[in-house]
């Protein structure tokens, strides 16, 4: 990314245009309509319940800026206009994601999500935030259980270890569901510690089994994340470093799933697949 001074220079160059498009809700409404197709003034009037004078005043300003052109009585959006309104809509979606799920972001650690992905966070705008409450303290977990048991394939990244998940994943992978899990060194060690010697052989067989792959991530993991063929589920660490088990964001749109696969691949590219030998060496260390 460019440095601070360069961004300030570009901001000087552009701030008039940014203000012009963002300031007026009326102009944003007009551009939204025109992005859908050419319109007559009276059609816009009907769509947005605005007065004729308000529309025509703003239309003139939009024309002066080259965002709109008039052909016969029809107003058309220009390429620049279309580009700018699309960009602003995306900006608004991101704003909605930060506002609607403020609980999830505020006082939580975002460092586990790349800037590229944060820029595309608008794709999460139609998510559901599952929150634990007094009536159901395990709500996020039971939702997560649903996500896992309904999937045809599962890719997960986890900073923590839950013995119950371990059995659950083993069960599911036996049914033919392909599972890839990215874990930290520490978590893998914990898993191995819970294995009894007589189960080690079985465990190694499971790791060798193509359906379940474990990956060791070299570094700190600050997201609890799952993407499946159906949806994504995202949880974060609190700023104090503990995992927040009380909040989980769920989204099943295809854009969100694509976003989720990019997040998974970011981690995968920095992970190493565990072999049976790796597992055994963890066991010996214990």
């Amino acid at each position: 990314m460019a440095n601070l001074e360069h961004i300030f220079d570009l901001y000087e160059f552009i701030h008039d245009d940014i203000k012009f498009i963002l300031k007026s809700g009326i102009r944003l409404k007009i551009l939204t309509s025109l992005a859908d197709g050419p319109r007559l003034i009276r059609e816009i009037k009907k769509e947005h319940e605005l007065s004729f004078a308000t529309i025509s005043n703003n239309m003139r300003l939009l024309q002066n800026r080259g965002l709109v052109t008039k052909v016969n009585d029809y107003y058309h959006i220009s390429q620049t206009g279309k580009f700018q309104i699309n960009h602003v809509l995306d900006l608004m979606k991101s704003m909605a994601v930060t506002k609607d799920f403020e609980d999830l972001w505020l006082n939580h650690n975002l460092s586990g999500i790349s800037e590229d992905l944060l820029l595309n966070i608008g794709v999460l705008s139609d998510s559901i935030l599952i929150k634990a409450d007094n009536k159901d303290v395990f709500k996020p977990y039971s939702k997560f259980y649903n996500v896992i048991t309904n999937a045809n394939w599962i890719k997960g990244i986890s900073p923590f270890f839950n013995p119950a998940d371990h059995d659950l994943f083993n069960e599911i992978s036996k049914k033919g569901v392909k599972i890839d899990l990215i874990l930290t060194d520490e978590v893998i060690e914990q898993i191995v510690k819970t294995i009894k010697l007589k189960d080690l052989l079985k465990e190694i067989t499971t790791v060798l089994n193509n359906n379940l792959s474990l990956w060791r991530y070299d570094g700190e993991i600050t997201v609890g994340f799952t993407v499946t063929d159906k949806c994504i589920s995202l949880g974060l660490l609190n700023t104090n470093g503990s995992y927040d088990q009380n909040r989980d964001l769920i989204n099943s749109s295809s854009d969100a799933r694509e976003w989720g696969e990019r997040l998974f691949n970011d981690y995968l590219s920095k992970s190493k697949k565990l072999s049976a030998v790796d597992m055994a060496s963890y066991f010996i260390r214990k």
Partner: peptide, 23 residues
């Protein structure tokens, strides 16, 4: 910046860069 603030800061910088490239 708070986490929501960070997201919006990135979006604003992106907007400045993109609008300049267009202009």
């Amino acid at each position: 910046l708070s986490s929501p603030g960070k997201i919006m800061a990135l979006k604003l910088i992106n907007t400045i860069m993109v609008f300049s490239a267009l202009k």
